[in-house]
Nucleic acid binder design. Structure first.
Lengths: 106, 106
DNA sequence: AGCCAATACTTCGCCACTCGATATATGGTT
DNA sequence: AACCATATATCGAGTGGCGAAGTATTGGCT
């Protein structure tokens, strides 16, 4: 698996606490990133389709609220593995910059 | 500045030790990533142009070796700031996954 | 009652970027 | 002679991010 984009990473990370529907993922990612990551809707739903297609997430359940559908997604084992690997990659990459003589502390 | 792609990050990180020419950046990035990151030539020269255009790197000098040009790039202050910020972002992002109850240690 | 903000999902099209392929050239190794 | 590493440049295809537009409901404020 090659490196994951930031939106993809934050979508998976948002689902680690349990299933969420699309809009809630946007809110959760914003919250977890300290307000920095604001997933655009076009990014989210496209990424959700790709992630479901590759088995990293799955539809948990579909509710109907106010006559309109709401899809909850959950992270799969493969997805949890992938996001953990990505976190490791990022931690290692960060060390290239921070783990050098004269570098400012993290 | 929004999040940086992996190739961009590794190009900047490679230049933290001093000026390098294009091909040497590919080798250095591979070395620093433990063999994981292999910059494609098309990625490299495109990214080099963009980075120079946005002032994160600059042409250090141009040599002629064997009748053919060789351009050395160096990282600018803005570039060093940007790569440090990116390292911080990645370290923080990694903590979202690792800094949770039951998470495997980094 | 009327309006607006927030919630919620979908689709479209543009644009930026990655990457493999291709081209070109030299020097060292087998 | 063939091949590989070094070295740079460019093109085209494909992926993915993102803003916008569209649709629909609920709840609060005026």
């Amino acid at each position: 698996m090659r490196s994951m984009s930031e939106p993809t990473y934050f979508i998976l990370a948002a689902l680690l606490d349990g299933p969420l529907h699309g809009y809630a993922i946007i809110k959760r990612a914003e919250e977890q990133s300290g307000g920095r990551v604001r997933l655009a809707v076009g990014t989210l739903y496209g990424a959700l389709d790709r992630l479901a297609g590759s088995g990293l997430i799955a539809v948990d359940r579909e509710e109907t609220v106010g006559g309109r559908p709401r899809r909850y997604f959950r992270i799969t084992e493969d997805g949890a593995d992938a996001v953990t690997e990505e976190a490791q990659r990022m931690a290692r990459a960060a060390r290239i910059v921070f783990g050098r003589p004269g570098a400012a502390p993290a």
